[in-house]
Amino acid sequence: KEYCRTLFAYEGTNEDELTFKEGEIIHLISKETGEAGWWRGELNGKEGVFPDNFAVQINEL
């Protein structure tokens, strides 16, 4: 499994977007979303897309 840590808080504006606080760990599902600048991940049981410049991939939890 791949993970990323959020660098900033983000408020999702669409139903398919994740909302998160700074410093949260998102399970990274895919970097290929069909839309440049967006990754797909899962946080707190919800799957959605989020801007990749708001997070950095990490090697271990």
Rank of each mutant, 00 (worst) to 15 (best):
K46G: 00
K21C: 10
H27M: 12
D16N: 14
L61W: 11
E2P: 08
E42D: 08
F8Y: 11
N14H: 12
G48D: 03
E42P: 00
E22P: 12
E32K: 13
I26A: 01
G34A: 09
E32V: 11
D52R: 13
E32W: 11
T6Q: 03
E2Y: 11
W38T: 07
E47T: 13
I58M: 14
C4N: 00
I58P: 06
V56K: 13
Q57C: 11
Y10R: 13
N53E: 13
P51I: 05
F54Q: 07
G37M: 01
E24N: 01
A55H: 00
K31N: 04
T33W: 07
L28I: 12
E47D: 07
F20A: 01
L18W: 01
I25K: 07
A36C: 11
V56M: 12
L18S: 02
F20N: 04
D52Y: 12
T13W: 05
E35K: 15
I29V: 13
W38R: 09
K1S: 09
E22S: 11
G34K: 15
W39N: 02
A9P: 12
R40G: 01
N14L: 07
Y3K: 02
K31R: 14
E17T: 06
R40N: 02
E11S: 09
N59D: 11
E15P: 13
K21Y: 07
R5Q: 07
V49G: 03
N59L: 05
L7V: 12
L18I: 05
F20P: 00
F54C: 15
I29H: 04
A9T: 08
N44V: 01
W39Q: 03
T13P: 04
N14W: 09
A55I: 08
C4P: 00
G23P: 00
G48N: 00
I58D: 14
G34I: 03
T13A: 15
E35G: 11
E17M: 07
E15S: 11
N44R: 12
K21F: 06
W38M: 10
L7P: 00
G48L: 02
A9S: 15
E60V: 08
L43S: 06
N53T: 14
D16G: 15
H27L: 12
L18P: 06
E22N: 06
E11K: 12
E22T: 09
R5M: 08
L28F: 05
C4M: 09
V49R: 15
C4S: 01
W38E: 01
T13L: 12
E2K: 12
L28S: 02
T13G: 14
K31D: 02
Q57N: 12
W39S: 10
E22G: 09
A36H: 10
I25V: 12
A9F: 06
G48W: 00
E22Q: 12
N53S: 14
F20H: 04
W39V: 05
G23Y: 00
E47N: 10
E60Q: 11
V49N: 12
K1M: 11
P51D: 05
E2N: 14
G41F: 00
L7G: 04
L7Y: 02
I26V: 11
G37F: 05
N53P: 07
C4H: 00
D52H: 08
Y3M: 07
K1F: 07
G23Q: 02
E35L: 13
W39H: 03
E24I: 04
G41Q: 03
N59F: 01
T19D: 05
N14F: 07
L43F: 05
E42L: 09
R5P: 00
I58F: 11
Y10N: 01
R40F: 10
E22A: 12
V49H: 05
R40Q: 08
G37R: 03
E32A: 09
K46E: 07
G41N: 01
Y3N: 08
A9Q: 12
K1L: 08
E32Q: 11
K21R: 12
N53K: 15
A9C: 11
Y3S: 09
C4I: 11
E17A: 09
H27W: 08
L28C: 03
I25A: 02
L61P: 15
L43N: 06
K46N: 08
I29R: 08
Q57P: 15
Y3W: 03
G12K: 09
R5E: 10
R5C: 06
E60C: 11
Y3Q: 02
F50E: 01
G34E: 10
I25C: 05
F50M: 01
D16E: 14
